[in-house]
Design a binder for these strands. Structure first.
Lengths: 340, 340
DNA sequence: CTGAAAGCGCTAACAA
DNA sequence: TTGTTAGCGCTTTCAG
């Protein structure tokens, strides 16, 4: 903890008043010119804009936000900033929000509700106009805090019958079931799952196993890997699965990176993919199409999730009633390439 | 652009005054209890803290920042949020800043100064207490803006004799030269570079070529790939290099993902690595150690860059003179594994 | 179409 | 140790 010294005495910043004086108008007119230019006649507008240029005026959004009760800030909390899974979503969020004049404030919760609670507490102090969360598993405390502060909330990347507020995602259970049927449909019977330690992956795994059971297949083996999942985890997992007496002929990995590890180890051991083992990933990362063999994987439109989440936040801020912003299931698809 | 409606009439938020009334003290005492608890006697402190709990008070950092002229916000602008290269840096920045009570505000400039200028403009409106940039190539406008607004700035991931303010990085020219000597030292003579389109990678490439020239080697071929670099780009690049009449026996890739692509294509074509071609990556991503063969790569301590950058911002905010916060070269190393 | 007054929620500066 | 006063920079509100 650093000891706080008095703030540096930067020269007093230029304010609307400085601009107003130079333009020969009132502060209000400057404010209007900046925020609702169409409500100011062109002649005045130009004088003000010239004065803004001349004074190098930079609006203070802290003051704007305080007075107007709109920070023009939307917070997004993702499990891992580095994770490529969410980067399309973050990208789309940023872009769509920017078009509407909002900035995105990113936070990383690090999987699990403990980090999320602390982050949420910190974030709310900045008075965001909206909050976007990944996942639907939040602590009681988080739900109360969010419900209490009246900020629009969108949960993403999952579905639940009881969202905090708004919802854009897809069913992880459906993913697990679909991939299981997909592999079984290729005649594979000794299935397995390699799964990172996160709640959504666990949901996919569970449905995968239930579906295997329903299809009369042997119970799939499960190898757990720590998050974040790496290529090394995938290689280890395949070695572990090959050591099993039952053997394995179809593997569902909870990330493409894990799947790439499985492919790498298979190639290293001379095991034919998809001949002897079929491999399915999750995420359709940029490398999936170019892996050897090309990776069959679950494709989710992360950009659409981000875009729709942004639209919902913006809509709610603009006063749209809940009925106009229904929960959205963006679905998923199994993108078939060579590996299965 | 969404039309702005009047802000939602959320119930008036609880303020320091509400807490003060309940605790039977003044607003100032509440403020002190929150910000400098050691300056309030334990008895008072406890009464206030109880009142904070009871009222569910959440401080408004917009107001704090406006009044105290300290937003407790540090902005970081990185070329690509998704890029795993910077994730250690962002992680360390976040952690070190958080310890000192600062939040990190992340922005993505998307390589190239155009995006950076716009983002910078937007960011400064939030009145950050410090700004961390990746790279040292900034537009004239950006440099002026930053110098003018008096905010501490740290440039990172590169070195320059003329930083805007503070600097934590390493020499990309040295990297290019070192890798060239490394490959040449293995007796490889027909060298090549596969490079993403970014300024720092270009600097490494240039030094690589200059060093090859100095060593009396043939001019290395260069294959450019768009950013962000992918495994597919790496595969394509190797195919292109193999089609060259001169041939190739050593390749320096500007990212580990490109290198993984080169390895993949080499394996696919039955080309021995490191036997026939040596491959060196950049970044030491988590997958590098587990690639087949394990990837020799340039390792940079991204976490240290983030940590040191944070220390510099905090130090400058606390009033430390420039002399106490010298430019720092964190260096790099070539992490030798099997691929070269 | 424009401006004057007031105040968002908080803390710096001073006084007691 | 505590409180009072004032005002950060902006925009809401209402009157001209």
């Amino acid at each position: 903890m650093t000891r706080l010294l008095p703030p540096p005495d930067r020269q007093r910043a230029t304010t609307v008043l400085d601009v107003a004086r130079l333009a020969g108008v009132s502060a209000m007119t400057v404010s209007r010119t900046l925020n609702q230019p169409q409500r100011v006649p062109p002649a005045t507008r130009q004088r003000v804009q010239a004065a803004v240029q001349a004074t190098q005026y930079v609006p203070n959004l802290l003051a704007c936000g305080l007075r107007s009760r709109r920070s023009r800030l939307v917070a997004a909390i993702v499990p891992a900033l580095g994770s490529p899974v969410f980067s399309d979503t973050v990208q789309a969020l940023t872009a769509t929000l920017a078009e509407a004049g909002y900035h995105l404030m990113l936070g990383q919760s690090g999987y699990g509700p403990a980090g999320e609670d602390a982050l949420l507490q910190a974030v709310i102090r900045r008075r965001p106009d909206g909050i976007v969360l990944v996942g639907v598993d939040h602590s009681r405390q988080a739900r109360d805090t969010l419900a209490g502060c009246g900020v629009p909330v969108v949960e993403t990347w999952d579905l639940t019958p009881a969202p905090i507020d708004m919802l854009v995602g897809f069913s992880h259970a459906d993913v697990g079931a679909a991939v299981c049927r997909f592999l079984a449909g290729q005649g594979r019977r000794r299935l397995a799952v390699v799964s990172g330690a996160d709640a959504r992956a666990a949901r996919r795994t569970q449905a995968f196993q239930a579906t295997a059971h329903a299809l009369g297949l042997p119970t799939p083996a499960v190898v757990e890997a720590e998050a974040p999942t790496t290529l090394g985890h995938g290689r280890q997992a395949l070695r572990a699965l090959l050591a099993l007496p039952a053997g394995v002929d179809g593997i569902f990995c909870s990330s493409d990176m894990l799947a790439l590890g499985v492919l790498t180890e298979a190639a290293h051991q001379g095991i034919a993919v998809p001949g002897r083992i079929g491999v399915v990933g999750f995420g359709d990362q940029p490398f999936a199409a170019d892996a050897e063999p090309a990776l069959t994987t679950v494709r989710v439109d992360g950009a659409r999730i981000g875009h729709e989440a942004a639209l919902r936040v913006i809509g709610r801020i603009a006063g749209a009633p809940a009925a106009e912003l229904p929960a959205l299931d963006v679905g998923f698809s199994i993108f078939t390439r060579r590996s299965a």
